[in-house]
Design a protein around this nucleic acid. Structure first.
Lengths: 238, 238
DNA sequence: TAGTGGTCTAGACCACGTC
DNA sequence: ACGTGGTCTAGACCACTAC
């Protein structure tokens, strides 16, 4: 593990554990150089990670100020899976696998995943129950040359954990899109909808570190249970 | 302007102008060192910006691969304003200012903005018309000690442009939240809703670079006109 | 004036991919 | 073996804040 990543994790833990609270100044870069016995650029790489994640704001001539982290917010931002979220939130929730097997790929999806028509894909469909109600449907389409199959136990736990830990693949990045779509017959049948006429749909394409597209996901959320929180920096395009 | 930022903008332009297309390798870091006559760390800072923005993927031992940028996607992600979006998309749209003046702050908002109750805030309410229909309502609450007033012309153009260019303030970062809420009487009155019972609500807190909270915004979108696109990297928490 | 962060350098060694 | 990106260093100079 790299030094700057270790320092980042160390400082992150210090902030999460409230050893530094909102408004505090972190030790100066020169002090951190002494503390960790590394060069200043190494410290700065660690601080940049904190900066990107919204933990601190740096002010020239002053120092690194710890920002107010809203711990109870839903960080659906970034590339985080349902399971990780659930762990973080301690949600009373349950996953039900309703499909897990090969499916001939549709023409549209074949195009999308850059497969030839007719190639089978691994189709996984799961219901997410929170407090006894089905509020999310997740549909995953996986390229079988990369992920040939998923044990049901892994599907009930975390798909990403299985892909990364068991298959040893490195997930790189994802492109995602959020829209609100009219409900389908399937939504009506499988979800505990109330009078709703729409659901929030999050569609993602997920790529490995070597830029291979290996997964397309459609996640359908009941309106009242959907919340997305994001931290964004203004990039001065000077 | 810093060297690494100039190099970033140069490479970004090259990618946007298709001088490099999806799947291409950028010149190696050592080649870029020669091209730009700078040190390797400076090149790497520029490449990191491309990486964060989703323009490239770096693969050790191989090079920097240009990714597929979906140019017609709505990058509502990051800290971008409606006006900037509109420019980028060439949308046929129009802004109507329906409120622009001081308002005694409510208790809830006072708390939120850390103001004392009763302090006036600058309240700006705007309707966004696209293709003749009102599909977005924007409500901005601005701290008057920082932004005392907004000329109507600026409100019709770009609020951020006015704040940055005319007032000379530096916007730092924002925290935003997306939910789907039931419509209000006001939504019904002001927007061209169809049978909709809900709207997408984007709430943001916007801070200056010195961490001062100066704006709270509530942006209400008609369901069928809302789309959010995001690029996310998986951070290996190794 | 002293201390802070912002930028940049020239060089080093390592890990990985390609051939 | 060679070229690629990943990490790290020790030092330099600048811009800004605080006093």
């Amino acid at each position: 593990m790299s030094k700057f990543n270790e320092i980042f994790l160390d400082l992150e833990a210090a902030i999460l554990n409230q050893r530094f609270i909102s408004g505090d100044l972190l030790p100066s870069e020169n002090e951190l150089v002494k503390t960790y016995n590394v060069s200043r650029e190494t410290i700065r790489k660690a601080l940049n990670l904190l900066l990107e994640k919204g933990y601190i704001q740096k002010i020239q001539g002053k120092g690194s100020i710890v920002l107010d982290i809203k711990r109870f917010d839903f960080p659906v931002s970034g590339l985080t899976s349902y399971k990780e979220l659930q762990d973080a939130q301690n949600m009373n929730s349950q996953t039900i696998v309703v499909s897990n097997g090969l499916l001939p790929v549709s023409e549209e999806l074949a195009n999308h995943l850059k497969l030839s028509v007719g190639t089978p894909v691994l189709y996984l469909e799961r219901l997410r129950k929170v407090h006894g109600e089905v509020v999310i449907i997740d549909k995953d389409y996986l390229v079988t040359s990369i992920v040939p199959s998923i044990p049901n136990e892994a599907a009930e736990d975390s798909l990403y954990h299985y892909i990364e830990q068991t298959l040893g693949l490195s997930i790189g990045y994802a492109q995602k899109e959020i829209t609100v779509d009219p409900i389908t017959e399937e939504d009506k049948r499988l979800m505990d909808l109330q009078e709703d006429t729409h659901v929030v749909v999050v569609r993602s394409d997920v790529y490995l570190e070597d830029t291979t597209l290996f997964q397309h996901t459609e996640s359908r959320h009941r309106l009242d249970r959907f919340r997305f929180v994001d931290f964004a920096r203004r990039r001065n395009s000077l």
